[in-house]
Amino acid sequence: MIALKQILAILRKDILLELRSKDIIVSMCVFAFIVVIVFNFTFDPTTQQIKISAPGILWVALLFSGNIGLSRSFAREQENSMMQGVLLCPVDRSLIYIAKVIGNVIFMTIVQLIILPVMVILLDLSIGHVLPQLLVVLFLGTLGFAGIGTLFSTISANTKSREVMLPILLFPVSVPVILSATKSTAYLLSGKDIGQSLSWIKLLVGFDVIFLVICFLLYEYVIEE
């Protein structure tokens, strides 16, 4: 019970900060928009081709903007030695990890809910019939990515060039999550092969569990001062 309260307290601090500054969500949204627009220019948006690429475009936009959000969220902790304050609290280190993951998932989900309708309009996608499944896949993919990303952004925030270091660490390791999230989205959007997407979703759940457990166990080693 106390653990839950502590998680909520850290989460509340992060959300409050975001509500006052709004810099993470705004910068993520703008960046995700730009990625989608750039893809619209590089592929011919009128052809059937773009509908096949749509799941890829969606995930590239989400992951790249997620990367920005993750690095921002820990750069903020470095300003005014905020992390010191959190570490001074009598809170278990692993709870800090859980709170941070939840916070990052919330921010990334908000961005997704803004980007998805834009994608539907720009690319003329029909998602009505698979919307619940699609939201589940988006959530699972985000969870895995944020789970790994939270650990790595804690690491990269303490390196010399943190903006460069985070994607270099994050993307190769999260290949399984990226792959299964994109694949299940592709099968859902194609309208056929719902069964295929189900097996990819199961795989995605498995990857999420593995990564979250490992990162949870290792987090205390990267955060101690």
Partner: peptide, 22 residues
């Protein structure tokens, strides 16, 4: 050294997972 150790462990655990997913 601690960061590197953590990343080295995750990296190695990742290898079979990457192989399987691909």
């Amino acid at each position: 050294a601690r960061f590197a150790a953590v990343f080295g462990i995750i990296g190695f655990v990742d290898v079979p997972i990457v192989y399987m997913s691909i």
